[in-house]
Design a protein around this nucleic acid. Structure first.
Length: 803
DNA sequence: TCCCTTTCACTTTTT
DNA sequence: GTGAAAGGGA
């Protein structure tokens, strides 16, 4: 299409579309929508809540709605506000709208994350909230260093009151939309014997002095801006004719307040979300926001999307039955029109190692059957679980990819490199200067840094300037003085060069001449090569930007690199990072009490915590299109200690009719299941499962476990060959002859396989978790023990030893 | 100032 | 068991 000079592409596009293709049955973006989706797209006036269950085409509705608004000529692209949580979601949305509406719409200016739109607004009105232009955005690392300084200045023991804790406390306040003066005195007093509120205020002052904001401020200051300047708010009211919010169940109070202020204008606010997928309560998300929508926005219409296009019947029914155990929900019932598919499988393993082995074998079988590895995912509750799977995949030579983990820009080398660039970009970036002044080590230690600080404070100048002044005085030792002067001069030189060179060239020069690259080249550790690679990647990622400051501006908010997507590899990630994704086959390992639901969630949040864990389980199951395979292990090492575990209560909440309880081909699933408070899980069908209770020790799995244990040093590498073939013959042979105590890494795990227990009533025993106790009852291999500390528990005899 | 030893925690994570 | 961070000694 030829360019039309002087005309705004967006405006033309919208009008042209409206003229050529008026919104009607024939509009292409409406094609293929079901009636509910279509209603959600076409209900343009007034507040609308779209409750979109998992796999019901939520993104499709959002993008079609934008297309519809544009095509019907109701608004220009610049008059639509679309907010998402992650950059990834924003990018996807942009791409899809682009695909629907076409080239003419040059990206919608107000489509982005809460934070990126927040910055955009603050940059336009910075003077109204007391910021200078070009303010910097601090990330968590900067925040913590700043808070450490504040704590030190207040003589607060950092051991007792860690900066991290203060940071998350302040974050929590900001998430709830509280500025220092709004913090309830009682709450402010919680930290450091009453100094919490004061520290928060001091922190905000420091931020202002540094001309910086943190992530929370991007919204909080926006709220303040709107409240204190009605004329500014009115301007945005006029501007935004339509507001759309993705993942509304994840909004926190600050985001809610921010949004509500903006929505007072046109009232055409459409929020899309799923209360059953709210899994971010721990970082301030308020499910309440979505539950309250109808009362918050009077006259709101609610549309439910319940037709699921992703999963088979059994999977959907299992997920639905599970989530029905939650009380705080709006209630939806997903249904699918596809076939029932295969049942959700539940399998027990002896321990986490066997769990990983068995899952690895199943994946190999799937691979042989022609499944693509990238359509297989392992979703874990906690990242430490990934390790065993990774180890396994390495020995199997199975390609895998870990999603999530430390983000690219959070890596030390990237942050160091960025700090150098920030110093080149601005002489006033004190935090960046402090970070790299002695990286690589050049003999400028704490003592010198403190001196620089003193000069800076006294003269009211930034650290770089103070350092320059200091090198001109006689106060430093000659050696230090020389190095510091060299560094300052280097920065001046780089700044000069930055004017004439491209920013990527400058970056390379800076990293090279500062000795930073050399530092890693000399480093003998295993990660050094990867770090150098990351530095190269950083420079590469700068290319699309116009200049250094443009790059730095974006990097604080948006920085994720493609980590080799598209290659055929098993996807390993946490349940949290799986939200929004889908796979043909999903493995869900580690469904054990204490791990999932996580003990900490139960301890800290009680019932609310349990319900959030349950939602997490729901998210996990609904990621699967065709096959969901749940696992639990009877023994897991927690904090370096082997613990026997109890199958997760969520397993009992799955509907029998849709679940296939598998006998692990490795056997041994149900070994020791009696940990876990109260007897309420004693009734679990997984406790009663017969094949294992009486005859555990003659199953192939047990023998295999023993054999593997016996080959002490072969653990990992010995299992390299696929497992199925080894199973049948080898481990069965002579199995029943194996008797006697079994010691694993110094812990007595099993002492007897005799059908009648070797224990007697009244005998004193020791349990690794519960300590000492006295046997009060014997039932097969299960003992009832009155523990001195832990009270009465039912335990399998293999987990206690005679005291 | 640096390096080594001790100590501590250990759920989830975006911006 | 493991890794990161902090403190103390060289």
């Amino acid at each position: 299409m030829p360019e039309l000079p002087g005309l705004k592409p967006g405006g033309i596009a919208a009008r042209a579309r409206a003229a050529i293709a008026p919104a009607g049955p024939q509009a292409s973006y409406l094609a293929g929508l079901n009636p509910e989706q279509r209603e959600a797209v076409e209900t343009l006036d007034g507040p609308l809540l779209v409750l979109a269950g998992a796999g019901t085409g939520k993104t499709r509705v959002l993008t079609a709605r934008v297309a519809h608004i544009l095509a019907s000529g109701r608004a220009f692209p610049s008059q639509i506000l679309v907010v998402t949580f992650t950059n990834k979601a924003a990018r996807e949305m942009k791409d899809r709208i682009h695909g629907m509406v076409g080239d003419q719409i040059e990206g919608m200016p107000w489509l982005g994350t809460f934070h990126s739109i927040g910055v955009r607004i603050l940059r336009r009105h910075h003077e109204l909230v007391g910021l200078k232009s070009g303010f910097t955005i601090l990330d968590t690392d900067d925040q913590i260093r700043l808070l450490k300084q504040l704590l030190a200045a207040e003589n607060i023991d950092e051991k007792r009151w860690p900066a991290r804790l203060l940071a998350s406390t302040i974050d929590g306040w900001k998430n709830r939309g509280l500025s220092p003066k709004d913090v309830p005195p009682g709450e402010g007093a919680v930290f450091a014997n009453g100094k919490g509120g004061m520290l928060y205020a001091a922190y905000q002052d420091r931020l202002k002095a540094l001309n910086a904001v943190d992530f929370g401020d991007l919204l909080l200051e926006g709220i303040r801006l709107f409240r204190e300047n009605p004329d500014v708010l009115a301007e945005y009211h006029r501007r935004f004719k339509y507001l759309l919010v993705d993942e509304y169940q994840d909004t926190n109070v600050a985001q809610y307040l921010w949004l509500r202020l903006l929505a007072q204008g046109s009232k055409n606010v459409c929020c899309v979300g799923d209360d059953d997928q709210s899994i971010y309560g721990w970082r301030g998300a308020e499910v309440d926001n979505i539950l309250r929508f109808e009362s918050d926005f009077p006259g709101a219409k609610v549309i439910r999307l319940e037709r699921n296009y992703r999963s088979t019947g059994h999977i959907l029914a299992s997920a639905a039955h599970l989530i029905a155990h939650n009380e705080g929900r709006l209630g939806k019932t997903l249904f699918s029109e596809g076939d029932e598919g295969e049942r959700v499988s539940v399998t027990g393993a002896w321990d986490s190692g066997e769990e990983a082995r068995a899952v690895g074998e199943e994946i190999e079988a799937l691979q042989r059957a022609g499944h693509r590895l990238s359509e297989i995912a392992i979703l874990v509750r906690a990242s430490f679980q990934m390790r065993e799977f990774e180890d396994r995949f390495v020995t199997l030579g199975m390609p895998y990819r870990v999603i999530g983990g430390p983000r690219f820009y959070e890596r030390a080398e990237i942050r160091d490199a960025l700090a150098y660039l920030r110093c080149v970009n601005s002489t006033a970036d004190d935090l960046a200067f402090e970070r790299i002044v002695n990286v690589p080590k050049r003999g400028i230690g704490d003592a010198t840094v403190k001196q620089i600080h003193d000069v800076a404070r006294a003269a009211g100048v930034p650290l770089q300037e103070a350092a320059r002044v200091l090198t001109e005085s006689e106060e430093l030792k000659p050696k230090v003085r020389g190095t510091l002067r060299g560094l300052i001069q280097a920065f001046e030189r780089w700044r000069e060069q930055a004017r004439v060179m491209s920013h990527t060239e400058i970056a390379e020069i800076v990293l090279d001449e500062s000795g930073y690259t050399e530092m890693w080249q000399k480093d003998r550790s295993a990660e050094a090569a990867g770090r150098l690679e990351n530095l190269k990647e950083l420079v590469r990622s700068m290319e699309p930007f116009e200049n250094l400051s443009g790059f730095l501006e974006h990097i604080s908010l948006v920085m994720d690199v493609d980590n080799g997507a598209g290659e055929d590899a098993v996807q390993v990630m946490t349940l949290h990072s799986a939200k929004g994704l889908e796979f043909d086959t999903v493995f869900l390992p580690g469904w054990e009490e204490g791990l999932f639901p996580h003990q900490r969630a139960l301890d800290d949040q009680g019932k609310a915590g349990l319900e959030e864990e349950r939602r997490l389980a729901y998210v996990g199951i609904t990621r699967a299109r065709a096959s969901a395979r749940i696992w639990f292990a009877s023994n897991r090492r927690i904090h370096g200690m082997w613990n026997s575990t109890v199958p997760s209560r969520f397993l009992d909440e799955l509907p029998d009719a849709h679940v296939q309880v598998e006998e692990s081909r490795g056997g041994m699933g149900w070994g020791g299941s009696s940990y876990g408070g109260g007897g309420s899980y004693g009734q679990s069908r997984f406790d009663r499962a017969e094949p294992f209770a009486a005859s555990s020790y003659s199953t192939p799995g047990w023998q295999r476990a023993q054999t593997q244990r016996g080959r002490t040093d072969s653990g990992g590498s010995g299992g390299g060959r696929g497992g199925f073939s080894e199973r049948g013959g080898r481990y069965d042979a002579g199995a029943s002859a194996r008797r006697g105590p079994m010691v694993i890494e110094g812990t007595l795990v099993a002492s007897s396989s005799a059908p009648s227990s070797a224990f007697k009533r009244g005998e004193r025993v020791f349990h690794i978790k519960f300590g000492y106790g006295e046997i009060t009852g014997i039932d097969g291999n299960k003992l009832t023990v009155q523990f001195d500390k832990a009270g009465e528990k039912r335990v399998v005899d293999t987990f206690v030893e005679k005291a």
